[in-house]
Design a protein around this nucleic acid. Sequence first.
DNA 1: CCCAAAAGCTAACAGCATTAGCTCAGGGCC
DNA 2: GGCCCTGAGCTAATGCTGTTAGCTTTTGGG
Lengths: 187, 187
Amino acid sequence: MAVRPRLTTAKVVDAALELVDEHGVDALTLAAVAARTGVATPSLYKHVASLGELRGLVGVRLIEEMTARFTDAVLGLSGDEAVRVLMHSYRAYVQEHPKRYTAMPMDPLHDELQRAAGLKFMEVLLATLRSYGLEGSDAIHATRRLRVIVHGFASIESGGGFGLPEGLDDTYDQLVRMYLTDLRGQS
Amino acid sequence: MAVRPRLTTAKVVDAALELVDEHGVDALTLAAVAARTGVATPSLYKHVASLGELRGLVGVRLIEEMTARFTDAVLGLSGDEAVRVLMHSYRAYVQEHPKRYTAMPMDPLHDELQRAAGLKFMEVLLATLRSYGLEGSDAIHATRRLRVIVHGFASIESGGGFGLPEGLDDTYDQLVRMYLTDLRGQS
DNA sequence: CCCAAAAGCTAACAGCATTAGCTCAGGGCC
DNA sequence: GGCCCTGAGCTAATGCTGTTAGCTTTTGGG
């Protein structure tokens, strides 16, 4: 640590995220990040190993941010109310950052950081379902079903996959209700 | 039509799809397609306007192929059995072409071809749900819920997003059951 | 039999990620 | 307090993209 760097890995990821938010995930290029941080492109390699790694770090950032937000939202709640708040929190996050969700990695097993972030995320889901008294594989299945619904909807909505946005709130409410009913029904 | 072309747009899309299947969606490059079709890269522009358009055509191909397959699978069935077969057909297709699903466009409104293909796909879904006697927005909500589940699961599974693949069949069965129960419950 | 349309080609260019090697500032250490 | 060495940032260069311009050559229609 001979020199205090003007740039850090965290700041590089910050700039990358801004770029994704503003111009979409395809605009995440090392040249653009360099321009935004006021640095020559090759200088970024002092903080990031490659464009691929930067993408991975952005993914970790997203998972962490969502996890923190959901943890906060669900705090002090339990049962159906906790699940409802969690699911609506998820959708709200994606709605606030429409272009961001495309950068979410579905494969958190490759990278060690992503793996850790993914596990923490799963823990929040499991904790939210704890009051239902599910054990072993039942708990795993329940979190999987939750992920499927929440990610499926977010993915289609943020990609503009639903034709007209009319009644989307209703559709989501129905999904939440469907999930909760099913959760109670199998006890 | 002065010359019988050695290459056609369809063959270009064929090669593109092969590339996606073999080496993932990131390997879909004009240079690679040219190499595979035995032609110089710029020659492709006689059949395709740009890489972006080729991506779109690949997307259309995928939607059409899935639609055809589901139409076939559901033929002569109705009610729960039709829905069950449709959902399992969807998953089977994605399992057979793991890397392919990433190329599926969620935004079929930009391109005219994609729009048409997407509508046909939705028609199959609506037709499958016809025997439930849903009308108006109820039918729309039901198809949306179906898409959310089916796409959510396929997206996570094909991306390796479920940790261990253990018990994934059970998870999917639970989702199918959940959807059907919900469908009956609200009549 | 000619000619125009169109498929494929080569040459060229801009933008990208990435590597190699340099410069030079500043904190650790005596 | 002055040296040194670590490391951040730079410039130059390479190879791979997609894309455009303009030429060559084949071939079906008149």
